[in-house]
Design a protein around this nucleic acid. Structure first.
Lengths: 117, 117
DNA sequence: TTCACGTGTAAGAACTTTCTGACATGTGAA
DNA sequence: TTCACATGTCAGAAAGTTCTTACACGTGAA
């Protein structure tokens, strides 16, 4: 499997999604096998709404995939599993990704008005 | 060069440091060669105090290294350069790192008191 | 002495992320 | 009908991050 080469903006999203202890734990738990959210919440020890939010962030970044299924007894269950990803980060690869950033953040033009007094 | 295998806590720090467009641009710029902060600030187009903050975050994560030097004309110059790093992230490696997290975040015990009404 | 250039830091505004505690929906079984 | 269990969402508090403005210090040259 060859490493992904995400665009700058996507890279930021993926890194931000990974940069959180709870979300790391979610991924680690899902790595053992798929699970549905209520059960996963109990497993990890956080509230369901909170888990819901973290899963959204992970899914938006493409790190997990969720599918809504109907269990045998008719309950709607949302199962999540890890999407396998392969990120290789070095000074070089990061620099390349940075080149494709869509100038989102710094916005305003000249700064540092600081008068030397 | 073999990839690093950071502990969970350190991994979160590194990822958080990388998960920002400005900091990505800083790394990309420094990848071309070392630079001192005032010049780098002009280069990137952000204020010096802001850059100072971002550099601190990058240095704390071990992604850049700064050295204070005296220029020929006696000025104190702080030069930064990228530390070369090599992170290989997959579902597996992330899961392993997560296992070493020092239970920092979720803190409180049972949650989801939600009465089923 | 003043200017231009370098360094650092601190206070507060503005914004984003994280988290809790409701509330709403649905199903099947007792 | 009520309970247990599944889903989702929203409002607001709390905490963290980002950013500006302003101040401090230093040097060498005009």
């Amino acid at each position: 499997m060859t490493p992904d080469r995400p665009s700058g903006d996507h890279l930021v999203e993926v890194l931000a999604a990974l940069a959180n202890p709870i979300r790391l734990r979610i991924l680690a738990t899902l790595a053992h096998g798929r699970d549905y959210v209520s059960h996963l919440a109990r497993e990890i020890g956080i509230s369901r709404p909170l888990l819901h939010m973290h899963l959204q962030r992970l899914e938006a970044a493409g790190l997990v995939v969720g599918t809504l299924e109907l269990s045998d007894d008719g309950k709607a269950m949302k199962y999540f599993e890890v999407a396998d990803f392969d990120l290789h980060l070095t000074a070089e690869s990061v620099a390349q990704a940075a080149a494709t950033l869509t100038r989102p953040d710094p916005a305003p033009g000249p700064a540092d008005k600081e008068k030397p007094r």
